[in-house]
Structure formats: structure tokens, C-alpha cells
Design a protein around this nucleic acid. Structure first.
Lengths: 233, 233
DNA sequence: CTAATATACCAAGGATTATTGGAATATATA
DNA sequence: TATATATTCCAATAATCCTTGGTATATTAG
């Protein structure tokens, strides 16, 4: 094996992984799996594709060792193969947002109500949430909340929000978040809350984004509750 | 535009970037450009492809805003569009090496002489190089050395090594590096040096790898000389 | 054991991407 | 101005990937 063949093999291996993430739907599946392990059928539903197609995409991701699967009764549960994977997704997203102004524009256009709080630093949000000055609201499905959530956050899945909205205080700012900036559940929740007279603000960051930012700011370290020992709030 | 269409647009934009890096040759071009700006013809030569094909690949990379080009007389010079790009390449590579054991195996198999020094910490190498205890040898082409090099490193391009080998001390360890772990110039240099009785050791890291590692270790910060004011050693 | 469910496997058509030949453009040189 | 050089553009074929229909497999429920 000469130098050229060795190089081709090495770059080829890395490309195996980059090819796996070179598809919008596969990126979306990674985002979904970054929240919690899920079955094929659920992934398909949440990504708006057929189970068959989801299965094919997941096979690609598995081939690149970005996700792994495990049978659980009748269904097959996929999960990210390491915490590096969500981190990687955040990084990809961030880099794309830095470099593609089309993306920046699309995001800016989207942020009708978004903004102010995103930029307020995590430490101060943390303090306000701890002291009950604001309410952190996680509108993702319950299992995703249980897997990991922002500190002091309260779970109220979007689907239940309409029925449970009265549990929330009318006199406090409600900071709503979901899976990340490309997930629009928090947007819908904010619209609903505002309609009902609540002071709702959208936080575009999700758990993975928060974790990456926090590990960079070394110190703040807002360890995300959750994981093995689920405790519903 | 409903939620689904918005999501598709957002993930689609990120995929635009990931698609650009989903090719071994384009990854190789990014590595080459991470060293220094280069013309199409030179990139084609160094990546072992036709200029035409190089041009096509570079167009893709430009479309994703990962590189930019600028005419300089008869030729067109490409460069990475930001220091984030080499950093991104190192990260991709690292993640792939973490997750794909095939890659790990290929690298391990390759490291006949590689190893010991890679794992010695940067601070201590830095000290030894500063005090002349060892020689850091950069075997990349001169312009890449001028663009940026490891601290206290000396330039001796692989092509000139045979003729200039006598300039090197026989009684000191010579630490040889090049573009990074997938570049085999340092391997060839080490073989040549050992053949001639020198104490040569391969350092698999290149400038970009060193920079990423150093910024993580916050403190060591071995600012890489080079850039606007080139000063040949 | 049979039926129902969830997922994977296989195959095929359509869509996209890779690669190369030939022509066009822009610059430098004679 | 004519010629050579470096690169891009265009077109066409080959290769690859996407997507879906049909089928197979494993599991649970009856």
C-alpha cells in the first residue's frame, strides 16, 4: 500500500462519517435522538417521514457509528452512540449558522418574539430560575425532559399545555424552551401562552446547546439533571 | 410557510454544509488549504487529481462558504474562509477516529515509528524545543511553514531534506511533523533520517491539531508564529 | 399455532453527484 | 495582436443515493 492509497483510505473513513450527516433528514433524526432514545416509528412520526424511510436513514447513521440500536420487545430503540454526537450536531449547526448568511437570515426572520433572553447569560438565568423569579418551562415530551433538562425547569409537554395552562403563574415571566433552535414547539407554546395573557419568552437553546455553551464557559457548569434516575417534577 | 417547511429549510441549509464535506477529496482539499492558501493547480497536484476535478470540488466548497477564492494574475488562489474551518476539520477527524474502529486500526497499523512523543504533553515539548534539547522539524513546503508553524520549529521541506540533511545535529532527537496525522511527509522524513543515523521521531500532530489542543488546555497557548509578517528562520 | 405489529431487507425507478472531454474566459507573454 | 497558461463552464455518461413497493423476520397477543 503506497502513500496515496493510505491517504485515500484515511480520508475515505472520515468521509464515511461526514456522508452520514450529509442529509437534512438524518440531521433531524440526530437532533431527535439527541433528546432521548426513541423507536423507529416515533422517529418517523416526529420527523414527518415514513417508518421505512426512517429505518433506511437510521441504518446509514448506524453504519457511521453515530447511533446504535437495541431491540425492546416489538420495537427497536435507537440512541446516540455517545454524548459527543449531540455535541457534534450543535457544532455543525453553529458553524453553518456562522458561515451561511442564508441560514442566519432565515433564523432572524423566524425570531418574531425570540431574542432578548437568549443573550442574557446563563448564570443570571440560572439564578432567577432558582429563586423563582422566572419559570423555566420545558415543553418537550415527558421522556425527553426526564432524560435531561435545564436546571430548575418544569415539564409541560406542548400537547398538554392547553389543558394544564392554569398551573402556570400569570405574574411571572415564563421562559419556554424545547429541543433547540430548529424545533418550533417552544414557538407554538409561546404563541399559545401570550394569547392567554401570560408573559412568555422563547429561549431558543435546548439542552445540548446549553451543555456545549456551559462547558466552554467552564465554571457555570449547570449540570443537567436526568439520566438513570428519572424523577418527574 | 408552516412548521414543517421551516424545519426542512433550516435542516436543509445545514446539510448544504455537511454535503460539502461528504467527500474524501474535498476533505483532503480542506486539509491542504488549512496549511496555506494555494492555487487550483497546486491543490490538484497535491491531492493527486486533475485540475478540472479540483476546480469542481473547490466550487462545491465555495458554495458552502468553507473556502473563498481570489484571482492572482493567471491563477486563482483558494483559502479557507475562516480559522474555524481548519478547526472544524480537526474536529471531524477526531470524532471519526473516536467512533470508527476501522480508522483507529488503520492509524495504529500505520504507526510503526509513531507514538511516544505524541503523547508527551505540549508544555514539556515546548520547553525542550526552546532550550535546544530537541529539534522541531517542519518538513512541509516553505510557504506553509511561513503561514504558521509550531513554536521553535525549523523549516526543511521534504524535497530539500536529502540535500540539506547535514545541517541537522546527529546528537539530538529530531521531532518531525508535517500537515497532520494523514499527511505522510513526516513519516518519509523520519525514515530518511533514521537511515542516515539520525535520532528522528514522528510527531503526528500538525499546526491545526496543536492549535485545537492548545486552546482546549487553556494556558499553554503556544501562539503559532506566522501570518502577515513572514520571517523565514 | 395464527394474526397483528414493528422493523429490516431487497429491488427498482427516479434524482443527484462524480468525472471527463470539449469549449470559453481571463490573464500574461511574445 | 497572437499565443500560451490557468481556470471555469457546459454537456454527457457513469456512479451513487433516495424513496417506495413488496417481502421477510422477530415479537407479542389471542
Amino acid at each position: 500500500m503506497n502513500n496515496r492509497e493510505i491517504k485515500d483510505a484515511l480520508f475515505g473513513q472520515v468521509a464515511r462519517m461526514t456522508k452520514a450527516v450529509a442529509s437534512p433528514k438524518r440531521l433531524e433524526l440526530i437532533e431527535l435522538l439527541s433528546q432521548a432514545p426513541k423507536s423507529v416509528e416515533r422517529l418517523a412520526r416526529e420527523a414527518d417521514i415514513s417508518p421505512k424511510l426512517a429505518s433506511a436513514h437510521l441504518k446509514e447513521l448506524r453504519g457511521a457509528r453515530l447511533v446504535e440500536s437495541q431491540r425492546q420487545g416489538k420495537r427497536i430503540i435507537y440512541r446516540v452512540s455517545s454524548p459527543e454526537v449531540p455535541q457534534f450536531w450543535v457544532l455543525l449547526r453553529t458553524l453553518a449558522e456562522d458561515r451561511l448568511f442564508e441560514l442566519k437570515d432565515a433564523l432572524r426572520q423566524l425570531s418574531l418574539s425570540r431574542g432578548e433572553w437568549c443573550e442574557e447569560d446563563r448564570m443570571s438565568l440560572l439564578r432567577k430560575a432558582r429563586e423563582g423569579e422566572i419559570v423555566m418551562l420545558d415543553v418537550r415530551p415527558a421522556d425527553e425532559y426526564e432524560q435531561a433538562h435545564l436546571p430548575f425547569a418544569r415539564s409541560m409537554p406542548l400537547a398538554e399545555l392547553h389543558g394544564r395552562i392554569a398551573e402556570l403563574p400569570l405574574d411571572k415571566t415564563i421562559l419556554v424552551y424545547c429541543r433547540g433552535p430548529y424545533c418550533l414547539m417552544s414557538k407554538d407554546a409561546v404563541l399559545l401562552l401570550e394569547e392567554q395573557g401570560y408573559q412568555a419568552v422563547l429561549l431558543s437553546e435546548g439542552v445540548a446547546e446549553w451543555a456545549v455553551a456551559a462547558s466552554a464557559e467552564s465554571g457555570c457548569d449547570p449540570v443537567l439533571t436526568g439520566g438513570e434516575a428519572p424523577g418527574r417534577k
